[in-house]
C-alpha cells in the first residue's frame, strides 16, 4: 500500500513525459481547419492576368469536378519549393486554381511568368480578405474541394512527393470516385 502511494507520482510523471514526448513530434503550425466539411466560402477575386476570367468561389463550387486551390505569393520561398510539384501535377491533369495572396499583382504575374503556370485560373487577393474567408494562416496552403464544392482537406506548407503520395493524392482519388458515383 505504502509502496503504491510512493510509486503513483512516479507513474504520473512518466505519463506526463510520454505526453510531452509525443507533443515534441507534432508541428504546432498544423492547425485543424475550421473549414473542412464546410462549403467553400464566398469570394470573388479579380484575375491576376488582366482580361482573364475572375476567380469566384461560386463558379469553382459548381462544376462538379474535385480540385485543388493553392494559396501562394511571390514573396513566399516555400511556394518556390513546391512550384515544380504543382507544375507536374497540372501536367498530369490535376485541376489547380491559384490565389495570389497578399501580393502585388505585378509581382505575382512576374513570378508566374518566370516559371510555367500550373493554374487553370489565378485570382489576385492583395488585401488577403479571401484568405481570411478561407482561414489561411500563411503560404503555401492548399485546399482540396470536392465535386459539390465542399472543402474536404487543408494542407499547410509546401506539397512535396511525400505529402502528395500520403495525403492529398489519395484524397483526390477518393473525391474523384465520389464524383463519378
Amino acid at each position: 500500500m505504502k509502496r503504491a502511494v510512493f510509486l503513483a507520482p512516479l507513474g504520473l510523471l512518466l505519463l506526463l513525459l510520454l505526453a510531452f514526448a509525443m507533443g515534441l513530434g507534432r508541428d504546432p503550425k498544423e492547425l485543424p481547419s475550421a473549414l473542412v466539411g464546410q462549403p467553400l466560402p464566398a469570394f470573388a477575386l479579380d484575375a491576376l492576368e488582366p482580361g482573364s476570367a475572375p476567380l469566384a468561389s461560386a463558379a469553382l463550387a459548381k462544376d462538379g469536378e474535385p480540385k485543388l486551390i493553392n494559396v501562394f505569393a511571390s514573396w513566399c520561398t516555400s511556394c518556390r519549393a513546391e512550384h515544380g510539384k504543382l507544375v507536374q501535377l497540372a501536367a498530369e491533369g490535376v485541376p489547380i486554381y491559384g490565389i495570389d495572396w497578399k501580393d502585388e499583382p505585378a509581382a505575382g504575374r512576374a513570378y508566374l511568368a518566370e516559371r510555367s503556370n500550373p493554374f487553370r485560373a489565378v485570382g489576385s487577393d492583395p488585401s488577403g480578405r479571401a484568405g481570411v474567408e478561407l482561414g489561411v494562416t500563411g503560404t503555401p496552403e492548399t485546399f482540396l474541394i470536392d465535386g459539390k464544392g465542399v472543402v474536404r482537406m487543408r494542407h499547410a506548407g509546401p506539397i512535396d512527393e511525400q505529402v502528395w503520395q500520403t495525403k492529398l493524392g489519395p484524397m483526390l482519388e477518393q473525391l474523384r470516385a465520389e464524383a463519378r458515383a
Partner: peptide
C-alpha cells in the same frame, strides 16, 4: 473569426 480559423 472563429468560423474561419477554428477554436484555436
Amino acid at each position: 473569426v472563429q468560423a474561419r480559423y477554428g477554436d484555436f
